[in-house]
């Protein structure tokens, strides 16, 4: 009732506003999106605040666990683990040696702990992105109408300046790591969704038809044929998501994320170019490591290329 009466008053005011010809845009015709958004957010927090708290606590708990163990392990063991994963993914000696060297250089910059903190945030943000992005991508691939509905939302998410959604994220989760993780998620999830959708749609229609001809159900086709064959594209999505996430590292630190981004920010505030450069290089190293590992896995799973 409330909404209807306020809407009708606004409409009436708006119509009468257009009746008078003035230089200024008629005041009565303005859409108060600001107020609507703010009151909407407020009521969200008022009604579902508990849920946000629970989510906040869970993520924080996980983050502490991962960050804690990464920091507790001796540096050489962490390097060894990363090198082993890289080896498993690529079977390339040069990549393994290169990654080990660059990680050692990070240690020499005295940025080891901050790198581990950033890595922990990246791991969690990417995991959430993947867990939410892939199902949405699958949904999007299931119908052209859903695709048409989701696409503009993704466009909006990617073109909207990231500062705009930093505000509501902080509103819900307060300043800190969790808010940063969510900001990263919003920025990183569109490529994950898009590439999942694309990967599934690009699966050879003849192969899918073959599965259908043998009477496979939709879920048998999805899990047994579409997803495995979409894997290289899916991993390209994971790769993109990680790159987007790292690109957000500095911006995320503005709302309280710790780690390398915070170092860059401190360098910026103090006019300390060297400090910013060191932290920036460490971010690049992290990006290269994660990129090479995911890209190698993507190539390994591409059955159309390798024999």
């Amino acid at each position: 009732m409330d909404v209807v009466t306020s809407l009708s008053t606004w409409l009436r005011g708006c119509l009468s506003g257009f009746g008078i010809i003035t230089r200024e845009f008629p005041e009565a015709c303005q859409i108060p999106l600001k107020e609507w958004t703010n009151s909407g957010l407020k009521s969200l927090v008022r009604n579902y605040g508990d849920i946000f708290d629970v989510v906040n606590d869970q993520i924080l708990f996980l983050l502490r666990k991962i960050e804690g163990s990464l920091l507790a392990l001796p540096w050489w063991l962490v390097i060894l683990l990363i090198v082993m994963v890289a080896w498993h993914a690529s079977r390339s000696r040069w990549l393994a040696v290169g990654l080990a060297l660059s990680l050692i250089i990070i240690g020499m910059f005295e940025l080891w702990d901050d790198t581990m903190r950033t890595l922990a945030i990246m791991l969690i943000a990417t995991t959430i992105t993947v867990l939410i992005g892939i199902p949405i991508g699958i949904l999007m691939a299931s119908s052209k109408y859903i695709q048409a509905a989701i696409n503009p939302i993704l466009d909006g998410m990617q073109t909207m300046p990231s500062f705009v959604y930093l505000i509501p994220v902080v509103f819900f989760f307060g300043l800190g790591n969790v808010a940063a993780i969510f900001a990263i998620f919003i920025y990183a999830v569109p490529p994950m969704i898009r590439l999942t959708n694309l990967g599934i749609r690009l699966v050879d229609a003849q192969v899918v038809e073959a599965a259908e001809a043998f009477g496979a159900t939709s879920s048998q086709i999805l899990w047994g044929v579409r997803l495995p064959l979409a894997m290289p594209t899916l991993l390209a999505g994971v790769n993109q998501a990680i790159m987007m996430a790292l690109a957000m590292a500095v911006i995320a630190s503005m709302i309280g994320a710790r780690g390398l981004g915070a170092q860059v920010l401190r360098g910026l505030n103090n006019g300390n170019v060297g400090m910013g450069l060191e932290a920036g290089l460490a971010i690049v190293v992290l990006a290269v490591i994660l990129d090479r590992i995911t890209a190698s896995y993507g190539r390994r799973l591409d059955y159309s290329q390798t024999a």
Partner: peptide, 8 residues
């Protein structure tokens, strides 16, 4: 015609 085997 084009076999349509499962490559994976």
């Amino acid at each position: 015609q084009r076999f349509a085997l499962f490559p994976h």
